[in-house]
Design a protein around this nucleic acid. Structure first.
Lengths: 328, 328
DNA sequence: TATTTTTAGGGAATCGATTCCATATTGTAG
DNA sequence: CTACAATATGGAATCGATTCCCTAAAAATA
């Protein structure tokens, strides 16, 4: 591996001059510049990022913390982040928590030690422990998917998306609507989507039976089980169900099919997340598209702007789009 | 950020001694060690990875090159890689090619410049340009998902998996079997799975009409289109179809449903990859499970062994498992 | 007791860049 | 013809660790 020192010797100049050519800074004569450039060309020299970052305190690496890489939402976000970063010569250091909340906190520390220039946190919660750590580490952090006071974030309008989706069901004549949610420590998915649903129901003067409100985790089976609970436990049967993720909806759908319940005639169904498969289900699933890739791009863009001390938007709430298919 | 120099001053020793305590090397008196440890404890000092790697030429970072993060196979592999690496204090630098072959080559260079200790390449091909670059960069590289002479790799027994799956259809009485493949530059998925299929057919004395062999790309729609071609173009109609990925199978399934073709009565169907959704399709899809996460773990394990000059297995071919469901 | 070996610890070089500061040369305004 | 600014370049310090080499004291051996 050739170093700046050797380039300097070969070009008959000092390391300083080579550095000036590299960084386009200071005064360098046309003659010297040519010689240095020629040697660089010939040797294929590329400066060591290690050495550079030791001196400059910049690594051109962004840490990305995510709960799992195996579901579509985070994958798409990372794709967006990656595209934007690579355009700007940055790279991603990946930290996968495998859904372990404690690790979200731990990785913040670890990434700081790795001297990343910034962190993108695809968050599952906004608990105080996590928020405090973010403030403590003094590395710019952008949260994706959750709102949090004082923080930089890019998120979705979960409340209104849920409100609109519920309104759609109501417009189509449904009065008894069930809801499959997740734990409310996930403010975005757990709390806001539920609130949007409940407010839409209330503002239309509709009641929600407690048995219609079920809670699952982020997998298909738990959607299946939730649907089962809804149908078995409720006395008044709902005619529609909203699940807060497509996977929960898919699980619900599989239970309905097992029981021979026709969709949407006997039970309308919708999810969130515009998963690829939704379109190919039978019937195709109504869902909400959040443009996760764009969220990732935005997060990266704002983070880089902040890092490079340019103007940036601290908080972004992205739009959503209902994709209405045959399941309603 | 506190440095080794400050720790040395606070503990009343030289940087050398602090370094010795840190690395458990050389002679340090019990007394001095205690003092240094106390100061480290109090300050929460952690040595800079930058500085360390500048000197030692080790970064404890592994580059992972993948074609996309949005499909299950690479995601699972990365999950496995991540688990194994983090156990050993290594981290992942992610390079997403977004299916651009040229970038596979480019990223090898880029990761080398970042001084990664090793690279895991989730490969889509084994073209000479790529293989040459791997040899050129002199960083240990493990290929996942493809076989390649002289290289380190972890892959699957694609040939026999396809052979067995085809045999299963034949055992169940199918004689006319269609095949939805992909481009053969992807040796594993394109070539070997096709060869396994053809050899199984041949060894049972079965003919394959050219119209039964369709080629798609790695998405659902192209499975749909391939199925369409098969049914529209063939004169003798197949009674079963094998698709080389579950997504292609899902596409094929959606076409069949559109046309009211019953599965498996009129057309049996199977895919590869054990995608999560396969189980919830209607009918549940028969598929081949490759244990991708394990492949990722193995790749990481062997790579680290190589890096740390321990014994390692250069080439690993992992087992597979047929998951037989109602679609056959 | 003399000599060798082990233990302990520091000084300084090193890794590969950037950058401050000093110096030399050339150009330009007064 | 000065004086001063602009241009051009290099020496050396710096970033934060590791590590080679050297010295000194303590312990073991002759």
């Amino acid at each position: 591996m050739v170093t700046i020192k050797e380039i300097a010797e070969m070009a008959g100049v000092s390391r300083t001059t080579v550095s000036r050519v590299l960084n386009n800074s200071g005064y360098v004569s046309e003659d010297a510049r040519k010689r240095v450039e020629k040697v660089i060309e010939e040797t294929g020299y590329v400066p060591s990022e290690q050495a550079k970052s030791l001196r400059t305190k910049k690594t051109k690496v962004i840490g990305v913390i995510l709960p799992t890489i195996q579901t579509e939402t985070p994958s798409r976000i990372v794709t967006g982040v990656g595209k934007e970063l690579s355009k700007n010569g940055y790279q991603i250091l990946l930290a996968n928590t495998n859904l372990d909340k404690q690790k979200e906190v731990d990785y913040l520390d670890l990434l700081r030690l790795r001297q990343v220039d910034g962190i993108i946190l695809i968050a599952t919660n906004t608990e105080p422990k996590l928020m405090e750590k973010i403030k403590e580490i003094k590395v710019p952090v952008v949260i994706v998917g959750q709102e949090a006071e004082d923080m930089m974030y890019v998120t979705y309008d979960d409340y209104h998306a849920a409100f609109d989706l519920t309104s759609l069901f109501i417009e189509r004549g449904h009065q008894n609507i069930a809801f499959i949610g997740v734990d409310e420590t996930d403010r975005a998915v757990g709390h806001l989507r539920k609130k949007g649903f409940l407010d839409a129901m209330e503002s239309n003067g509709l009641m929600v039976e407690p048995e219609w409100m079920q809670t699952g985790v982020f997998d298909i089976d738990s959607g299946h089980d939730a649907m089962k609970s809804i149908l078995e436990k409720s006395t008044k049967k709902p005619t529609a169900t909203i699940a807060v993720t497509d996977r929960l909806a898919i699980g619900a759908m599989s239970y309905l099919k097992e029981k021979g319940v026709r969709i949407p005639e006997q039970m309308a169904l919708a999810g969130f997340g515009a998963s690829e498969i939704a379109k190919y289900l039978e019937p195709p699933l109504t869902t909400v598209d959040y443009q996760n890739e764009k969220a990732g791009e935005q997060a990266a863009k704002q983070l880089l702007a902040k890092i490079e001390s340019k103007n940036y938007q601290k908080q972004i709430i992205l739009d959503y789009r209902l994709i209405i298919r045959k399941s309603v």
